[in-house]
Design a protein around this nucleic acid. Structure first.
Length: 584
DNA sequence: AGCGATTTAAACAAGC
DNA sequence: GGCTTGTTTAAATCGC
């Protein structure tokens, strides 16, 4: 699917360029949308032209039919008709040319093998509103005519037009139909008439290979003329045709939607796959520290996951400047797509307990992609707890965090919830604290670090970076703010996703720093609750808001709200039963 | 091969 | 009784 052949170099360049200039996918999408709009306008224009030409053609034909056999004029008329046809072809060519250009520019994504169909569908089915407008006009204009033209609707096939994607040109037909259906009686548009004796097989989008391409109708015709007759008779302006046209519009709309989605997906994939090479310069970083950290990280990741033995429990980076690179999929997340049992593959020396940054960095991806996160349950639970303002969560809140943060956990609830409970009970690092209103779970960071031999030595430079970053406290904050302001573009409509706030960033730094310090020297040099053996033991504070725990938490809520998107909680078909075993 | 970490499943109990 | 929460056991997998 991600074969590079599909994407032209121009597309690639564009994507990369966009990414470099704007880390926000929204911008990309916006540009895409603009491009699409432009494209649609062009198509509309072309379509109108085509319709006009068709109209002229048909009127000539009707006149000819009505006039009986005026052989004398026939020659001249057919010449005119030819001219029209040529013009029509020219328009079509120009149209296709332009679409091809669009395609080359990456504004259009058309599979090489199917340029024909998509072109038609795109050119003629793109603007339902416009079509409806035309349809309306036409309908109004011919209400009276309707009586005269009793359409001999016959074929039942038309009743069920399957989603015949090969004939998306329907919308344009009403126009033609009614003019044609008048059979010359209706001469509102008096154009210089002409005969139509010449079959012009290619002149009608509903006629191809001798077959009527009206949805559901596959009548075969020897010549174009008989097809036109058929078109006028069988597919005249009536309720059925109207309904079919509407359906076809919807089909086209659906296809457009699908196309847009797929394009978006492709964009995300491309961005993701190439972000590593561009990540360092991905954003005009107002913050040196951040960028340095980012650079170190990205350099490390880009080089080789194996190159730097990382501390298993300490995240590599104190923070992600974030989610500006949020579509980033690092090496781990890539290979994590198919981990069978383990969330986290240690083969790549990725941290067992990915830090806030790590999870945040790929947050967007896992939020939306039904992909199993490459983290252990323990790591995730810890993450959830540490993200909370009070560093403590009830079991249900942990559940909510899981479902909120990972699309994967929106299914199989029974399985992973059990696993969560199991992990909470099993690992000593998770401490249950009785509360007035129940029990909350906290993290014993020391115990957590103990689980594995850790060596922060892995990336001393990293540690240095982290420390350096911390040293710049206020500067850091200011820079973050600037960075946030700059990058605070909502990327997806649903998501808060993108930008962890200052608080969460600072928190992340602090947290990572703690982790690093834990390894480097055992002196607890900070006051972070996470560092004490029983971090939250003393905050036996209250956990109200059983419903939406993370919601209104005051200033500190930034930490959580950064990850919390309200709309994300609404259950969008979390079908627990469907395809739940895809990861096994 | 052994071991530890992890996941998954399941049984069970307590509390609401 | 059903559900949630929490504990525990067991089996399987994976990597070292």
């Amino acid at each position: 699917m991600m074969t590079p052949q599909v994407i032209t170099p121009q597309q690639m360049q564009q994507i990369l360029q966009q990414q470099v200039l704007s880390p926000q996918q929204l911008q990309v999408l916006l540009q895409q949308q603009q491009a699409l709009m432009l494209q649609q306008q062009l198509q509309e224009f072309y379509k109108k032209q085509q319709e006009q030409l068709h109209l002229q053609l048909l009127q000539q034909q009707q006149q000819q039919q009505h006039a009986g056999s005026k052989q004398s004029k026939e020659q001249q008329v057919s010449a005119q008709q030819l001219a029209f046809q040529q013009q029509l072809l020219q328009v079509q060519q120009v149209q296709q040319q332009h679409l091809l250009n669009l395609q080359r520019q990456g504004l259009l994504t058309i599979q090489p093998g199917q340029t024909g169909l998509p072109l038609h569908s795109l050119t003629q089915g793109m603007i339902p509103a416009e079509l409806q407008q035309l349809w309306k006009e036409v309908t109004n204009a011919h209400v009276k005519e309707e009586h005269n033209n009793n359409n001999n609707s016959s074929s039942n096939n038309n009743g069920h037009r399957g989603l015949d994607l090969s004939s998306p040109a329907t919308p344009k037909n009403p126009l033609l139909n009614q003019h044609a259906s008048t059979n010359g009686q209706y001469m509102s548009h008096k154009r210089e008439g002409s005969t139509l004796e010449e079959p012009s097989p290619n002149s009608h989008p509903l006629y191809g290979h001798g077959v009527c391409k009206w949805p559901g109708c596959e009548a075969v015709f020897d010549d174009f003329h008989s097809f036109l007759k058929h078109l006028n008779n069988e597919h005249a302006l009536d309720d059925r045709s109207t309904a079919q046209c509407r359906v076809q519009m919807q089909v086209v709309q659906q296809l457009e939607l699908q196309l847009a989605k797929d394009k978006e997906r492709l964009q995300a994939m491309m961005t993701h796959l190439h972000v590593k090479s561009t990540e360092p310069k991905a954003t005009p970083q107002p913050l040196n520290l951040v960028s340095s950290v980012t650079l170190s990280k990205s350099a490390h990741e880009a080089s080789s996951p194996l190159s730097l033995p990382q501390t298993p429990t300490t995240p590599t980076t104190p923070l992600t400047p974030l989610s500006q690179t949020h579509s980033v999929i690092t090496a781990n997340s890539l290979h994590s797509v198919a981990p069978r049992r383990r969330f986290f593959s240690e083969k790549y020396n990725m941290p067992i307990s990915p830090g806030t940054d790590y999870i945040n960095q790929n947050k967007d991806f896992y939020m939306n992609a039904d992909v199993r996160p490459p983290f252990t349950y323990a790591s995730l639970i810890r993450q959830a707890i540490l993200e909370s303002p009070e560093k403590q969560l009830t079991l249900n809140e942990i559940y909510n965090w899981f479902t909120r943060m990972f699309a994967y956990f929106r299914r199989n609830a029974a399985t992973w919830k059990n696993a969560v409970r199991h992990n909470l009970s099993l690992h000593k690092c998770f401490v249950r604290v009785e509360n007035v209103k129940g029990a909350v779970w906290t993290v014993d960071e020391l115990e957590f670090q103990k689980r594995r031999p850790q060596k922060i030595s892995g990336s001393p430079a990293l540690v240095k970076n982290i420390q350096t970053s911390l040293g710049y406290g206020p500067t850091l904050s200011a820079a973050f703010q600037a960075s946030m302001a700059e990058n605070n573009i909502p990327l997806y409509t649903t998501a808060s996703i993108g930008s962890p706030t200052l608080h969460s960033l600072a928190h992340a730094i602090r947290e990572e720093m703690n982790g690093a310090m834990d390894h480097g020297n055992s002196n607890g040099s900070d006051s972070s609750p996470g560092r004490s053996p029983l971090p939250a033991m003393h905050h036996i504070s209250v956990k109200e808001e059983p419903l939406d725990p993370d919601d209104h938490e005051g200033p500190l809520s930034l930490v959580t709200t950064a990850n919390h998107s309200p709309d994300f909680d609404h259950h969008r078909d979390y079908d627990d039963d469907q395809g739940h075993d895809d990861m096994l």
